[in-house]
Protein backbone atom coordinates (compact mmCIF):
# COMPACT_ATOMS: atom_id res chain seq x y z
CA UNK A 1 0.00 0.00 0.00
CA UNK A 2 2.81 2.43 0.82
CA UNK A 3 4.14 1.94 -2.69
CA UNK A 4 0.77 3.04 -3.89
CA UNK A 5 0.59 6.11 -1.68
CA UNK A 6 3.80 7.76 -2.88
CA UNK A 7 2.73 8.42 -6.51
CA UNK A 8 -0.71 9.35 -5.22
CA UNK A 9 0.69 12.02 -2.95
CA UNK A 10 2.80 13.73 -5.63
CA UNK A 11 -0.09 13.55 -8.06
CA UNK A 12 -2.53 15.04 -5.56
CA UNK A 13 -0.15 17.85 -4.74
CA UNK A 14 0.24 18.62 -8.42
CA UNK A 15 -3.49 18.55 -9.07
CA UNK A 16 -4.30 20.72 -6.07
CA UNK A 17 -1.58 23.12 -7.16
CA UNK A 18 -3.20 23.12 -10.57
CA UNK A 19 -6.58 23.95 -9.08
CA UNK A 20 -5.11 26.74 -6.96
CA UNK A 21 -3.29 28.12 -9.99
CA UNK A 22 -6.50 28.14 -11.99
CA UNK A 23 -8.25 29.96 -9.15
CA UNK A 24 -5.51 32.56 -9.37
CA UNK A 25 -5.83 32.55 -13.13
CA UNK A 26 -9.50 33.48 -12.73
CA UNK A 27 -8.36 36.66 -11.01
CA UNK A 28 -5.52 37.13 -13.46
CA UNK A 29 -8.16 37.33 -16.19
CA UNK A 30 -9.11 40.75 -14.80
CA UNK A 31 -5.80 42.52 -15.60
CA UNK A 32 -5.43 40.40 -18.73
CA UNK A 33 -8.79 41.64 -19.90
CA UNK A 34 -7.72 45.22 -19.18
CA UNK A 35 -4.60 44.76 -21.27
CA UNK A 36 -6.72 43.19 -23.99
CA UNK A 37 -9.08 46.17 -23.86
CA UNK A 38 -6.17 48.61 -24.00
CA UNK A 39 -4.88 46.93 -27.12
CA UNK A 40 -8.19 46.50 -28.91
CA UNK A 41 -10.04 49.49 -27.51
CA UNK A 42 -12.82 47.15 -26.52
CA UNK A 43 -15.40 48.92 -24.39
CA UNK A 44 -13.55 52.19 -24.75
CA UNK A 45 -11.45 51.53 -21.69
CA UNK A 46 -8.52 53.42 -23.12
CA UNK A 47 -6.88 56.00 -20.93
CA UNK A 48 -4.95 57.88 -23.57
CA UNK A 49 -3.28 60.84 -22.00
CA UNK A 50 -0.28 60.66 -24.25
CA UNK A 51 1.53 63.51 -25.98
CA UNK A 52 -0.14 65.40 -28.75
CA UNK A 53 1.13 64.54 -32.19
CA UNK A 54 0.56 67.54 -34.37
CA UNK A 55 3.19 66.21 -36.71
CA UNK A 56 0.81 63.96 -38.56
CA UNK A 57 -2.04 66.42 -38.52
CA UNK A 58 -4.20 66.17 -41.59
CA UNK A 59 -6.27 69.35 -41.91
CA UNK A 60 -7.96 68.07 -45.08
CA UNK A 61 -9.64 65.14 -43.35
CA UNK A 62 -12.83 65.59 -41.35
CA UNK A 63 -13.95 63.44 -38.42
CA UNK A 64 -17.25 63.93 -36.68
CA UNK A 65 -17.05 63.52 -32.91
CA UNK A 66 -20.36 62.98 -31.15
CA UNK A 67 -20.86 63.47 -27.44
CA UNK A 68 -23.39 61.59 -25.40
CA UNK A 69 -24.24 61.95 -21.74
CA UNK A 70 -25.98 59.10 -19.91
CA UNK A 71 -27.11 58.97 -16.32
CA UNK A 72 -26.81 55.65 -14.58
CA UNK A 73 -29.67 54.33 -12.49
CA UNK A 74 -30.95 56.82 -9.96
CA UNK A 75 -28.28 59.47 -10.60
CA UNK A 76 -30.40 62.64 -10.40
CA UNK A 77 -27.93 65.13 -11.84
CA UNK A 78 -28.79 66.99 -15.00
CA UNK A 79 -25.98 65.99 -17.30
CA UNK A 80 -25.49 66.98 -20.93
CA UNK A 81 -22.73 67.79 -23.40
CA UNK A 82 -22.14 71.48 -24.15
CA UNK A 83 -22.05 70.65 -27.85
CA UNK A 84 -23.64 67.49 -29.14
CA UNK A 85 -21.04 67.17 -31.86
CA UNK A 86 -17.88 68.71 -33.27
CA UNK A 87 -16.07 68.30 -36.55
CA UNK A 88 -12.32 68.08 -36.19
CA UNK A 89 -9.38 67.00 -38.25
CA UNK A 90 -6.95 64.40 -36.96
CA UNK A 91 -4.23 66.00 -34.89
CA UNK A 92 -6.34 69.02 -33.96
CA UNK A 93 -6.64 69.69 -30.25
CA UNK A 94 -10.17 70.60 -29.24
CA UNK A 95 -11.78 71.65 -26.01
CA UNK A 96 -15.38 71.10 -25.10
CA UNK A 97 -17.28 70.52 -21.89
CA UNK A 98 -20.03 68.52 -20.28
CA UNK A 99 -22.42 70.38 -18.05
CA UNK A 100 -23.56 68.82 -14.79
CA UNK A 101 -26.02 70.19 -12.28
CA UNK A 102 -26.92 68.72 -8.93
CA UNK A 103 -30.62 69.43 -8.33
CA UNK A 104 -30.79 67.68 -4.99
CA UNK A 105 -30.47 69.26 -1.59
CA UNK A 106 -27.24 67.52 -0.66
CA UNK A 107 -23.64 67.35 -1.83
CA UNK A 108 -23.03 64.41 -4.11
CA UNK A 109 -20.04 62.86 -5.88
CA UNK A 110 -20.22 61.66 -9.43
CA UNK A 111 -17.87 59.56 -11.51
CA UNK A 112 -18.06 59.65 -15.28
CA UNK A 113 -17.15 56.50 -17.16
CA UNK A 114 -16.14 56.97 -20.80
CA UNK A 115 -16.98 54.67 -23.65
CA UNK A 116 -16.12 55.02 -27.32
CA UNK A 117 -17.95 53.69 -30.33
CA UNK A 118 -16.76 52.20 -32.59
CA UNK A 119 -14.44 50.44 -30.18
CA UNK A 120 -11.60 50.31 -32.69
CA UNK A 121 -11.49 54.12 -32.60
CA UNK A 122 -10.91 54.16 -28.85
CA UNK A 123 -7.14 53.88 -29.02
CA UNK A 124 -6.97 56.86 -31.39
CA UNK A 125 -8.90 59.21 -29.15
CA UNK A 126 -6.43 60.94 -26.86
CA UNK A 127 -7.89 62.71 -23.89
CA UNK A 128 -5.45 65.41 -22.93
CA UNK A 129 -7.59 66.49 -20.05
CA UNK A 130 -10.83 64.91 -18.95
CA UNK A 131 -13.22 65.30 -16.08
CA UNK A 132 -13.52 61.53 -16.08
CA UNK A 133 -10.00 61.29 -14.65
CA UNK A 134 -11.32 62.44 -11.29
CA UNK A 135 -14.34 62.13 -9.10
CA UNK A 136 -16.59 65.15 -9.41
CA UNK A 137 -18.21 66.54 -6.27
CA UNK A 138 -21.12 68.95 -6.69
CA UNK A 139 -22.81 70.91 -3.91
CA UNK A 140 -26.56 71.09 -3.67
CA UNK A 141 -27.87 73.10 -6.60
CA UNK A 142 -24.40 73.66 -8.06
CA UNK A 143 -23.87 73.68 -11.81
CA UNK A 144 -20.51 73.24 -13.45
CA UNK A 145 -19.04 72.90 -16.91
CA UNK A 146 -16.57 70.05 -16.76
CA UNK A 147 -13.84 70.41 -19.39
CA UNK A 148 -12.67 67.85 -21.88
CA UNK A 149 -9.64 68.36 -24.11
CA UNK A 150 -8.99 65.77 -26.75
CA UNK A 151 -7.10 65.00 -29.92
CA UNK A 152 -7.94 62.47 -32.58
CA UNK A 153 -4.83 60.60 -33.59
CA UNK A 154 -3.90 60.96 -37.24
CA UNK A 155 -3.49 57.22 -37.36
CA UNK A 156 -7.27 56.80 -37.09
CA UNK A 157 -8.24 54.25 -39.78
CA UNK A 158 -9.58 55.88 -42.93
CA UNK A 159 -12.96 54.17 -42.83
CA UNK A 160 -13.91 55.68 -39.49
CA UNK A 161 -15.73 58.95 -40.10
CA UNK A 162 -17.72 59.27 -36.92
CA UNK A 163 -16.47 58.71 -33.39
CA UNK A 164 -18.95 58.66 -30.54
CA UNK A 165 -17.74 59.46 -27.07
CA UNK A 166 -20.21 58.72 -24.34
CA UNK A 167 -19.98 59.40 -20.65
CA UNK A 168 -22.10 57.54 -18.16
CA UNK A 169 -22.39 59.35 -14.87
CA UNK A 170 -22.49 57.16 -11.78
CA UNK A 171 -23.47 58.24 -8.30
CA UNK A 172 -20.57 57.27 -6.03
CA UNK A 173 -21.57 59.38 -3.03
CA UNK A 174 -20.54 57.33 0.00
CA UNK A 175 -23.73 55.79 1.35
CA UNK A 176 -24.56 57.12 4.76
CA UNK A 177 -28.25 57.59 5.38
CA UNK A 178 -29.69 55.45 2.63
CA UNK A 179 -27.55 52.43 3.54
CA UNK A 180 -28.75 52.46 7.10
CA UNK A 181 -32.26 52.63 5.74
CA UNK A 182 -31.56 49.65 3.54
CA UNK A 183 -30.35 47.48 6.37
CA UNK A 184 -33.18 48.51 8.63
CA UNK A 185 -35.85 48.09 6.04
CA UNK A 186 -35.10 45.14 3.84
CA UNK A 187 -38.02 45.99 1.58
CA UNK A 188 -36.07 48.97 0.35
CA UNK A 189 -33.67 46.60 -1.35
CA UNK A 190 -34.37 46.35 -4.97
CA UNK A 191 -34.75 43.24 -6.99
Amino acid sequence: MSQQQQPNRTLIIRLIAGAVLMFGFGFLLVPLYDVFCQVTGLNGKVLNTGPVQDVNADPQRRVRVQFIAVNNESMPWRFRPEQSQLTVYPGQMKQTAFIAMNPTSSTMIGQAVPSVAPSEAAEFLHKVNCFCFEQQPLDAGEQRAMPLVFVIDAALPEHIKTVTLSYTLFDITPDTGPVAAVTEEPERRNL
Binding site: N71, E73, M75, P76, D175, V182, R188, R189, N190
Partner: peptide
Protein backbone atom coordinates in the same frame (compact mmCIF):
# COMPACT_ATOMS: atom_id res chain seq x y z
CA UNK B 1 -41.27 64.89 -4.50
CA UNK B 2 -37.52 64.48 -4.11
CA UNK B 3 -37.72 60.68 -4.27
CA UNK B 4 -39.94 60.72 -7.35
CA UNK B 5 -37.85 63.33 -9.16
CA UNK B 6 -34.39 62.13 -8.23
CA UNK B 7 -34.86 58.48 -7.39
CA UNK B 8 -33.38 56.71 -4.43
CA UNK B 9 -29.75 55.70 -4.69
CA UNK B 10 -28.96 52.04 -4.21
CA UNK B 11 -32.51 50.91 -4.91
CA UNK B 12 -34.56 50.24 -8.01
CA UNK B 13 -36.36 53.59 -7.58
CA UNK B 14 -35.54 55.56 -10.71
CA UNK B 15 -35.30 59.33 -11.15
CA UNK B 16 -38.43 60.45 -12.98
CA UNK B 17 -37.47 64.11 -13.45
CA UNK B 18 -36.45 63.43 -17.05
Amino acid sequence: IDVVLNGRSGTAMQAFAE
